[in-house]
């Protein structure tokens, strides 16, 4: 479904990603793990069209994404839930979801999608008239995910959905993603610093270090590999 081939991205000459290749197939939940500054966010932003790659290709269902504006990429069925949630905090929950439905022009389809999101996160339904900025951290993350789902993506990319949440909520959010993947067949590309939790729900994983992929394997194998145990789990 998504094939990234030898992708290189730099910020003002400083290289952030070098020759990164990865693949996500339909129905998979793939995790990208790595330390701060390894280039995880850069990778997702480049795929979403928010950054321009220097070299390499990004193909989604066979179509090249590099060079396309973000609104076209979202319209093709690829959504990004950005790091730090980036909600429109002075707009209501309902309005945030509507902005998320941008690529979908059909009113009825929008309402149906809204209902699906409310089914997944009943808390959002209760709070739909509330300003997004007044929600708790966990609810804000639910809203950020719900907002991405409103564009009816076939591939959902999430950048550190657990950031700043207490451990109980981290588990809850990641379980929701697992359910989304298993029950609704949503293909997910997840970037996480909570290495253990992420690899526990993922099918496969990639380890990103200083802008390069240093390991790629089954999530379970990765979780028990020396590299991951030593570098990220401190065992």
């Amino acid at each position: 479904m998504l094939v990234v081939d030898k992708l290189s991205v730099s910020y003002d000459e400083a290289p952030a990603l070098r020759d990164v290749s990865l693949e996500v197939t339909q129905g998979e939940l793939v995790a990208i793990i790595g330390a701060n500054g390894a280039g995880k966010s850069t990778l997702l932003k480049a795929i979403a069209g928010l950054l321009h790659p220097d070299a390499g290709s990004i193909r989604f269902d066979g179509q090249e994404l590099a060079g396309r504006p973000p609104y076209e990429i979202v319209g093709m069925g690829l959504a990004l839930t950005p790091e730090g949630r980036r909600l429109f905090s002075r707009m209501s929950v309902y309005e945030n979801l509507l902005v998320g439905a941008t690529p979908n022009r059909d009113q009825e389809a929008r309402q149906a999608l809204m209902k699906e999101v409310f089914d997944l996160f009943p808390r959002l339904k209760e709070r739909q008239k509330q300003k997004a900025g007044t929600l708790s951290g966990g609810e804000q993350q639910m809203l950020a995910i719900g907002r991405s789902l409103m564009s009816q993506p076939r591939l959902l990319m999430l950048d550190e959905p657990s950031l700043g949440l207490m451990p109980l909520l981290v588990d809850q959010i990641l379980e929701t993603l697992q359910r989304l993947n298993q029950e609704r067949g949503m293909t997910i590309l997840l970037v996480e610093q909570n290495v253990r939790e992420a690899l526990e729900i993922a099918h496969r994983g990639y380890v990103l270090q200083s802008g390069r992929i240093v390991a790629a394997d089954d999530a379970n194998t990765l979780l028990h590999s020396d590299l991951v145990r030593r570098a990220y789990l401190g065992i």
Binding site: A48, L50, P70, L87, R90, E95
Partner: peptide, 16 residues
């Protein structure tokens, strides 16, 4: 309003 609040987030959601 979304653009005013957070232009990058709006862009990521597919708003031009």
């Amino acid at each position: 309003r979304a653009i005013r609040e957070d232009q990058d987030a709006a862009r990521a959601l597919g708003v031009n």
